[in-house]
């Protein structure tokens, strides 16, 4: 490990703790370039924590993260982050376009105003997720799926090479789910690397080229057809998840 400086993201022996209680142990992997990667595991497995740790939002007990061989701080502009939708107050007095434009703030000075170009890019990204008509809508007036699409559009404005998405499919309507899938495909066709926290085992196999099975430790990581096995899922979920039997049946039918 650590031999390939070109890996979009290298996580080396990462251990993360909440109030001294480790929630992720010795995580070690390199993301392959240009793939859609699903991050799957039971509740409390540390999926969001891993994303946050990679983004530098959590203190690390040990280990490091490299982006194309460099520390994250030097390559932030290459990484787009889509936080969980519930992580913010949607009653905040801003409209959809305001939120999307925030994706450009990293490129501006702290005290400069967004340029016309910034707004045009933001509008284009809203359009890409099918939300152009809602640009001036106050964000509390948007449905959950629309809010999620606004978050995705915000990340798109960064035009990053790597995207980390925290549960973009959680609680969204069918139209949004479709829009997200289209978006993921488009990102892949542009050779972007995308890591997506995902809850639904039934669709994980279909959506992602690679899967990362996580439960406080990295259980398995590899191409979906190699990783998505009954044995691996059982190791990840232990005995507690009833979805497992469903998914396991599906595996068995193959």
């Amino acid at each position: 490990m650590g031999s390939n400086p070109a890996a979009p993201i290298e996580v080396h022996d990462l251990t993360v703790a909440y109030r001294k209680k480790p929630v992720l142990w010795d995580i070690d992997f390199e993301l392959p370039e240009g793939r859609l990667i699903g991050l799957v595991g039971p509740n409390g497995a540390g999926k969001s924590t891993l994303i946050k740790a990679i983004m530098g939002l959590m203190p690390l007990l040990s280990g490091y993260v490299r982006v194309y061989g460099q520390p994250l701080e030097d390559r932030r502009e290459l990484v787009g982050y889509v936080p969980q939708r519930e992580s913010v107050d949607w009653d905040f007095p801003v409209d959809a376009l305001d939120v999307v434009t925030m994706g450009r703030y990293g490129r501006m000075g702290l005290f400069t105003r967004p340029s016309k170009e910034d707004y045009e890019i933001a509008m284009a990204c809203l359009d890409k997720v099918g939300m152009a008509d809602y640009a001036k809508r106050q964000i509390s007036q948007l449905s959950g799926g629309q809010q999620q699409r606004v978050f995705l559009a915000r990340a798109l404005t960064q035009d990053a090479s790597i995207y980390l998405m925290d549960e973009p499919f959680a609680g969204v309507d069918a139209a949004t789910e479709k829009a997200i899938i289209e978006l993921l495909k488009e990102l892949k066709s542009k050779q972007k690397t995308v890591l997506v926290v995902h809850h639904d085992l039934n669709t994980a196999e279909e959506y992602f080229d690679w899967l990362m099975l996580l439960n406080m430790r990295l259980v398995k990581f590899g191409e979906t057809r190699d990783v998505f096995t009954q044995e691996n899922l059982r190791m990840t979920y232990g005995g507690k998840l009833h979805l497992l039997s469903e998914a396991a049946e599906k595996v068995a039918r193959q």
């Binding site: 946050k52 932030r76 502009e77 982050y81 992580s87 994706g103 703030y105």
Partner: peptide, 8 residues
């Protein structure tokens, strides 16, 4: 969180 992720 997002603010930090874009380097603010």
């Amino acid at each position: 969180g997002f603010a930090r992720s874009i380097g603010l």
